[in-house]
């Protein structure tokens, strides 16, 4: 497995795995409501990862995942190294900013709702969703251009489908905005948007077979 594939895989497994394990631990311990959150929207992602052991897993796992998201954007920059330098830098800026937003938003989560710095958490989570949408959109355009120039993109159809769904959700619900107490519909959108962003990260696994760490020194 190349370094690029490792980054794509770990970014998906860590983010989605952390949310899944946190939700399972939270519902087992009675700190989160049991339902199918993708359909019922009985809880938002944040509230599954605040109290008890679920909170420890959520904070540790999501901060780790955010650090890997930053690495994912660095790898993406290497993969698109033949694209416009300015566009790649702008894309990476928004991608890294989004990851840092979620990192800060997760770091301030505390077991008690009243103790949590909601201003930082809400801004961080919104920065993640909106920054990520901008970064992924630029990314998608750059990939399409590179594909037209002849660059192999095995995951192009999958990426196209995910981008379409993400933009439809964004337009239909006037953006994926996170708040302290979210409406039923927004909770459902939050779960799906997170899943699709995670899947977008994963699709690069098929594109990055040759993104490797190479020693160019001659021995």
């Amino acid at each position: 497995m190349s370094f690029g594939q490792f980054t794509a895989l770990i970014s998906f497994i860590l983010s989605m795995g952390t949310i899944a394990v946190t939700y399972w631990v939270g519902t087992s311990a009675g700190t989160a409501e049991l339902c199918n959150p993708f359909i019922d929207g009985c809880t938002d992602i944040t509230h599954t990862g605040m109290k008890g052991d679920g909170g420890f897993i959520f904070r540790g796992g999501m901060i780790t995942a955010c650090a890997f998201f930053i690495v994912w954007w660095i790898v993406m920059g290497v993969w698109l190294s033949r694209s416009s330098r300015v566009a790649v830098v702008v894309m990476q800026f928004f991608g890294v900013l989004a990851a840092l937003g979620l990192l800060a938003g997760t770091a301030v989560l505390l077991p008690e709702k009243t103790d949590t710095h909601w201003d930082i958490h809400v801004r961080g989570a919104n920065l993640f969703f909106q920054g990520m949408l901008i970064a992924l959109s630029i990314n998608y355009v750059l990939i399409i251009r590179a594909y037209k120039r002849g660059m192999p993109v095995p995951s192009l159809h999958f990426k196209s489908l995910i981008m379409l769904i993400l933009w439809l959700m964004f337009l239909a619900f006037a953006g994926v905005t996170v708040g302290v107490d979210m409406s039923h519909g927004k909770r459902i959108i939050e779960w799906w948007a997170t899943l699709f962003i995670g899947l977008y990260f994963l699709t690069s696994y098929w594109d990055w077979k040759k993104i490797r760490l190479v020693n160019q020194q001659q021995y």
Binding site: F3, F6, R59, G60, I63, T64, C66, A67, F68, V71, L103, A104, A107, R212, L213, V214, N215, Q217, Y219
Partner: peptide
């Protein structure tokens, strides 16, 4: 919390680099 968990990720990548680098020489 934010800084040291991120440090752990950097350490993981550092060790990954060490493996790839040592495998690439000799």
């Amino acid at each position: 919390r934010a800084g040291l968990i991120s440090t752990a990720v950097i350490a993981i990548i550092w060790w990954y680099c060490v493996r790839a680098w040592l495998e690439s020489v000799g």
